[in-house]
Nucleic acid binder design. Structure first.
Lengths: 190, 190
DNA sequence: ACCTGAACACCGTTCAAGT
DNA sequence: ACCTGAACACCGTTCAAGT
């Protein structure tokens, strides 16, 4: 019998949340099952999270921070390359960290009361794109950033749902496809 | 007390499904509440749908057919215009038929066992884009179609989740933004 | 401070039964 | 043919109680 004092239970619950999301999708995550996997009673999670939404939000926030760190690491080269790398990183994250991605964008992000720290983490990710766009491109950076974000997000969602496979794009190459598409989108701006 | 013989209950249940999706999101749709709104017992829906998934799939299929009809109506002009119109129609449908859109792409589309007719309806919608792309553009129509679909889908999802508003794009203009973005994406192909 | 157990209202689904 | 009512296992959440 493990003891989850000192904050270990919180970590164990988040791991269980990710495992359940991986196996059954974001909608398949259950507070009771997460508690059971952590070897703890059904009501123990309420010591660490206000409710189920808060637990999912914590996992989401973790995902955004991971994504943000990856984006910082690939943010090199010219403005066009940086923007294309941002999109490729976005899609790559979705197919390699599907559980996190599903929790970040799966039904509970905008409608439920997300935490302030979660909103900040999500905003940071997007700001990284917006700042890069502002550096180089003149015509309405908000519009251009939305276009790039939409393209990356759409490709990521379709890839995660397995709907890009019958289009001849294997998951391993989908990040590269995003890079090419964004480059074309930027080239068409004039 | 209404009587729902002759297939009226099926329609009433689909209407209730859409209303619940509109109010509480796709995840908030409940078989029992749909039955209650239709003025019928909790188990009556099982006469018309195999299970909850089948009821959601039926509402999804209806959405795809509506979308397909709208796309056919705007499919005019040159190839570039047609592709841009396809994307604008896609996004316009998402913001005006949010309930249908959420059911079509909200957590139950790819993972659950979708019906054959639903898959066919979804495929028709995409085929319309693919055929138009094949007419005019040479370089890998599958790749280009995926790019356009991703851009439209991403913008639709972000708009429905209200994440485009803080980017200065009001919902009313988001369809036009999709048209402009796709035109740029096509212009950048060479 | 952290966790348990019983309880409540809700859910999807099954099954025998009603008309 | 179409619908009801009771029942089962599951869920999120609350609350008193244990150490």
């Amino acid at each position: 019998m493990k003891r989850y004092h000192h904050g270990d239970l919180r970590r164990a619950l988040l791991d269980a949340t990710l495992a359940l999301a991986e196996e059954h999708g974001a909608a398949g995550v259950t507070l009771r099952q997460a508690a059971e996997r952590a070897g703890v009673s059904q009501t123990a999670p309420y010591r660490h999270f206000a409710d189920k939404t808060a637990m999912l939000a914590a996992a989401s926030e973790e995902g955004f921070r991971l994504l943000y760190a990856r984006m910082l690491a690939v943010s090199q080269g010219g403005a066009v390359q940086q923007v294309a790398a941002w999109a490729a990183c976005y899609v790559e994250f979705a197919v390699t960290h599907t559980a996190h991605f599903r929790l970040m964008f799966g039904q509970g992000s905008a409608q439920k009361s997300t935490s302030v720290s979660l909103q900040a983490a999500a905003r940071d990710t997007f700001q990284l794109l917006l700042q890069t766009v502002k550096k180089r491109f003149k015509a309405d950076p908000h519009r251009l950033a939305l276009e790039v974000w939409s393209l990356a997000h759409g490709m990521a969602v379709l890839a995660v749902d397995g709907q890009t496979r019958f289009l001849g794009q294997p998951p391993a190459k989908i990040a590269e496809a995003a890079r090419v598409a964004v480059a074309a989108l930027l080239a068409g701006q004039r």
